[in-house]
């Protein structure tokens, strides 16, 4: 394995750790499908970045930002419910993304890949993962309380509105972290599936977080090994493995 390939694996593991923790809060917030929607919105930016040969992460960030402003504007101008606006945006983004992405890159944009990365890129991703993890760890009590009862959280001293905004930014950052190796179609799964597995086994917050992070890390590391050994695509292998663990977890009877 070359250093660049090692960096690619390290990048995937740092993103997996952040996604595993983020998934727990996404599941508690009942916004697990938001990941799919937002990652699709990132696709046109990702495609254009590939076309113009610039850092894909920059394209994804710009695309997500424009998508969020558009949804917000459409909501202001019309009486359409948010989910309708998001539904239209997400289909439009997928179509535009497919049109602008060079055909040789479309599979990578949709399903990711284990392309070698530079040390500089790895450090950028590790720094972003660390920011997401630190945010979730520091704010975990405020997040849990705001989910339990928002009014109770406010009376306890939590600025719920600011916390929700910060959470959305961290959520979008987690998607950006996973886009590179899982692609727009699969990145949402790394947020949902490990958390869903962990939820089957626990009723306490520390175990829920630890279990989800562990499933996420194991899915990525074993998925990488399997993909490499059998010449499979990395992203689909990782997610198929995580999903298999989920289906197996259904046989576990919760106490």
């Amino acid at each position: 394995m070359s250093p660049q390939e090692m960096y690619a694996l390290a990048l995937a593991l740092s993103a997996a750790f952040a996604a595993g923790l983020m998934g727990c809060f996404a599941l508690m917030k009942k916004m697990t499908l938001a990941g799919d929607v937002m990652s699709h919105i990132a696709l046109p930016g990702l495609g254009l970045a590939l076309l113009w040969n610039i850092q894909p992460v920059i394209g994804a960030i710009v695309s997500l930002g424009i998508g969020a402003v558009l949804i917000w504007k459409i909501e202001q101008k019309t009486d359409l419910p948010t989910e309708t606006t998001i539904g239209v945006m997400f289909s439009a983004a997928l179509a535009i993304g497919a049109l602008v992405t060079p055909s040789e890159d479309i599979i990578t944009a949709l399903f990711g890949g284990a392309n070698p990365v530079s040390l500089q890129t790895l450090l950028l991703y590790v720094a972003l993962s660390a920011l997401v993890v630190i945010f979730l760890w520091v704010e975990r009590n405020r997040l849990v309380l705001s989910l339990f009862n928002a009014d109770l959280a406010i009376v306890t001293g939590v600025n719920v509105s600011r916390l929700n905004l910060m959470y959305l930014i961290a959520f979008a950052s987690t998607l950006i972290l996973g886009l590179r190796f899982l692609g727009a179609l699969l990145v949402g799964a790394l947020i949902i599936v490990p958390a869903a597995v962990s939820r089957q086994f626990t009723h306490t917050l520390p175990n829920f977080l630890a279990g989800s992070a562990l499933v996420s890390l194991l899915s990525v590391s074993i998925g990488y090994a399997l993909a490499s050994a059998f010449g499979l695509q990395t992203g689909p292998t990782v997610i198929a493995l995580a999903a298999s663990v989920f289906f197996l977890s259904l046989f576990k009877k919760k106490k």
Partner: peptide, 9 residues
């Protein structure tokens, strides 16, 4: 008004 489905004790 409290969400009792959260995985917390």
């Amino acid at each position: 008004d409290a969400d009792r489905h959260l995985p917390i004790n």
